[in-house]
Design a protein around this nucleic acid. Structure first.
Lengths: 327, 327
DNA sequence: TTGAAAGCGCTAACAG
DNA sequence: CTGTTAGCGCTTTCAA
């Protein structure tokens, strides 16, 4: 069906190796022959067989992206960033969704690892040890997770939380509730810690109401506990949780923001559409995806390179869900 | 690094061909040797190299999924269905997002086609001719699109629209607006047609307000025109558009549903969270994804099989955004 | 039931 | 600068 290197060689009247070189290392071949080969290749619509090439070079030209849940709008943004950068480098992307299941995550990672040159693990929930084991025999870049000195792209959660607390403190809030995400989530952890520091610095009380699923239902579930803390403001693990909070507060006739201010994190599209629109920390999701691939490609070309870590700042977006503390 | 067939053969004291057979065609090999080979393979943690196998069998064990926009929650659901079914068959999935760009779509499809056994094209915007051309040299299953007799999984849009119109007509609505999606969208077309028929059957006026981008902004943009039609109910291309409508109507102080009833399509998670919650047509998205892979795998195993078409029904979910026609 | 041999499409020494 | 040779890891005739 498809033309092979030999077909091109035959047509151009040269050996297969010359064709191979003319196409991959043009400098090593006489301009005249190079042109002849190119013409032949074009006329046959020749496209190299990646599998065959990979067999010998050991590179597949594919990478894998593993993430917890595509239904959370945070992740599609990351996917877009990853794909954009990958496409530019002519590499294809396997995408795997773990459904927030730690066991499935490791299985998927291991299965993918054998078929790709490298892996981007986005917000992985697995144990640090397991991730290190994977990284020992596959090139891996972490996204939104730090494990020892594995290469990683992360958001500056600490700074984000500082901005959120500063904002609320300036509005007179003295007691802030924190609705955490999954216990296995590194970012939830980071945010919680950043929050502790920032609230100490601002002299406000921080009340943690526990861990909740990182979506709408989690927010619904957390709302009553938040209210019970007596806090005048709440920061949620992410926008989805914040929107769930909003829904439940609305149902209970607790006015936002007049009685309770609500802050989300991520800035997913939906957060601008909620009622009231959500104050949130915008995270450069696509950029993070692009950068992760960038790091991965660098590492693949130069395995000896030191593992890099890139920290991306987030920024506070003030919208209608936060206002001055009551009375 | 990884163990090869030869390593296993050596350890088991047999030839590579025997190992190959013991693992892929166990019946053709003596139970005793088979066991020996299996033990050897396990102890080495042997995993066959897919690329090498593909080189000879012509099958990669990979499929591709191309879709317009992961940021539209409709598509992640499809992805999940596709991945679930693919995983069960031990095939990996390349995912490509075209960003609703027709040209990019064809490029991606062509690029992917060479690296996979088959392709699932979800809601493709390309011309029928182009899709047929692709299908001529790659196994393709269409999802949410019909082109001649290519294999496809589709939703019964006509019936869905009938349900929507019946619902609104029963509530006394006599003039219904339709906000269409992208002009290149097959499903928008189908829905429009279904709507024409259903409204004729129910004796209600249908007013088409044109084509809009299939997301929140599209709904925002369409809202004023919808109001100007004097319709008492509006059906939107999808839930995202419907939610955009809701937002703009809210901003203009036009009460939903008392003054205007709003119906969406898809039943994305967000539609249950909007204010008011959205009446919509639920589409079995994951199931469609699973089915598409199912068809694809069947076709790959039996290329001679007649192209099948599966039609999945949607069902009306009545929520707070629809009520009786005013006065 | 098993092994030897050939070869999928390509790249990478190594000569020339 | 170019051709020859060897082989990546696997499956599949073909004989034995």
């Amino acid at each position: 069906m498809a033309a092979t290197l030999r077909d091109v060689a035959r047509l151009a009247g040269v050996s297969t190796s010359t064709v191979s070189r003319a196409l991959s290392l043009p400098d090593l071949v006489n301009p005249a022959t190079r042109a002849r080969v190119r013409t032949a290749a074009d006329s046959l619509g020749y496209e190299p067989n990646k599998a065959a090439r990979g067999l010998i070079t050991g590179r597949t030209g594919n990478i894998g992206l593993v993430l917890p849940d595509l239904a959370n709008p945070f992740f599609p943004s990351v996917v877009k960033g990853v794909q954009a950068r990958a496409r530019a480098a002519d590499v294809a992307v396997f995408v795997a969704d773990t459904d927030e299941d730690v066991a499935a995550e490791m299985d998927l990672v291991r299965a993918l690892a054998k078929q790709v040159d490298g892996l981007v693990l986005c917000s992985p929930r697995a144990e640090a040890e397991d991730l290190k084991a994977i990284a020992a025999d596959t090139t891996v870049v972490l996204l939104n997770r730090i494990v020892d000195n594995l290469p990683a792209v992360v958001f500056d959660h600490e700074d984000g939380m500082r901005q959120a607390v500063a904002h609320l403190a300036a509005l007179g809030h003295r007691r802030i509730a924190w609705v955490g995400g999954p216990a296995a989530s590194w970012s939830s952890d980071q945010r919680g810690q950043g929050l502790s520091q920032a609230s100490a610095a601002h002299g406000v009380d921080l009340v943690e109401v526990g861990h909740f699923p990182p979506h709408y239902d989690g927010g619904m579930a957390a709302a009553d506990q938040v209210v019970a803390t007596g806090a005048t403001a709440v920061i949620a693990y992410n926008d989805l949780v914040a929107i769930g909070l909003l829904a439940r507060l609305h149902a209970r006739n607790i006015p936002v923001p007049t009685r309770l201010s609500v802050v989300g994190i991520d800035d997913i599209a939906m957060s601008a559409m909620s009622h009231p629109a959500l104050t949130t920390i915008r995270l450069p999701k696509q950029q993070a995806g692009r950068l992760a691939v960038e790091l991965l490609l660098t590492l693949l070309d130069n395995p000896a390179a030191a593992p890099e870590r890139r920290v991306l700042p987030g920024d506070l977006l003030v919208r209608a869900s936060t206002t001055e503390a009551p009375q």
